[in-house]
Design a binder for these strands. Structure first.
Length: 290
DNA sequence: AGCTCTTCCTGAAAGC
DNA sequence: TGCTTTCAGGAAGAGC
């Protein structure tokens, strides 16, 4: 599933292929995951691509203001979220079309930008600057950009379980199930611990673990299990480095204890019961009041 | 405030 | 063998 490192890898690939290109034609298959598909059909042909960037798990393809628009300040962005199984690839139109490919953009260099998404949990829309601003305001800071002190402040005051907070994009954006588990293992924190019961030292360790894990994953071009590929259609390699994710019953790489799997915040959570001690069972008798 | 459940969707894997 | 059921999950929304 694409999380920050996978989206970053796709964006870096697209940055080599898209800026400066003009979109010639747009063809769409299933459109139920596209917000206002008519707008894409109307506005994309003829527009030129300025840049490609990442905002959390969103990909933003910025278009140059078109001469036809009355207001040259009204920049548009083709915003894409890959969801679970989304793939965004740029290549020759002669390459075989994978099943479930729903958007084709032909480019002026003869290449084609394609969006493929088996489950269509992804999202696509053409949005103005103001929508991007709203997104940034509503979403938490990017997981790679947030400072240690901000991280401690944001998490230390919350009563939710730490895993739930890591997955909540409003707290910090970019982290999904894989990197939440990997980071928690690295920081030796149990996924069901309440964030406000962690020490500042533990939260700083978690912040560091997130940075280390995400940067290492980016170097390996992301994790591929079933569907994720980069902008050239190639899988990542970081899944080989996973310490806990999808390793139930296997030995912890630190202490050889068997990795366990539980449900936290409705998600599979993998952890080492020795390295990541469980929160103390809360009995009424011991309940603390604030 | 924060938790759980539901919804969207498909294919792989498990169950019978 | 071949069918049916279950599960996986990013994010939003409902309801408690």
């Amino acid at each position: 599933m694409p999380e920050l490192p996978e989206v970053e890898t796709v964006v870096r690939g697209l940055q080599l292929a898209l800026p400066g290109r003009q979109i010639l034609t747009v063809r769409m298959g299933k459109i139920d995951f596209i917000h206002e598909p008519d707008l894409l059909a109307e506005r994309l042909p003829g527009s030129r691509i300025n840049s490609v960037s990442r905002c959390g798990k969103f990909i933003a393809v910025e278009l140059a203001p078109s001469a036809a628009t009355a207001n040259p300040e009204a920049r548009l962005h083709l915003v894409i979220h890959l969801g679970m199984t989304g793939r965004l690839t740029a290549g020759a139109p002669t390459e075989p079309v994978p099943p479930h490919t729903h958007v084709f953009l032909t480019l002026d260099d003869g290449n084609e930008l394609r969006y493929t998404d088996i489950r269509r949990f992804g999202k696509m829309r053409l949005a103005p600057d103001s929508w991007m601003d709203e997104l940034r305001a509503r979403w938490g800071q990017d997981a790679l950009a947030i400072s240690a002190s901000e991280f401690v402040e944001r998490f230390g005051s919350r009563a939710s379980r730490i895993k739930a907070l890591l997955l909540d994009q409003h707290t910090v954006s970019g982290i999904g199930n894989i990197y939440a588990d990997e980071s928690l293992w690295r920081a030796r924190i149990h996924p069901a611990r309440r964030a406000d019961r962690l020490t500042a030292k533990q939260l700083r360790a978690l912040h560091r673990a997130i940075q280390t894990t995400l940067l290492a994953a980016i170097r390996m071009k992301g994790s591929s299990f079933s569907d994720y590929v980069d902008a050239e259609g190639k899988p990542g390699m970081f899944q080989r480095m996973h310490r806990v994710y999808q390793r139930e019953g296997m030995a912890c790489r630190r202490c050889a204890q068997q990795i366990r799997r539980i449900q936290v915040a409705g998600r599979s959570s993998f952890f080492c019961p020795r390295c990541q001690p469980a929160p103390r069972a809360r009995k009424n008798f011991g309940a603390r009041k604030k």
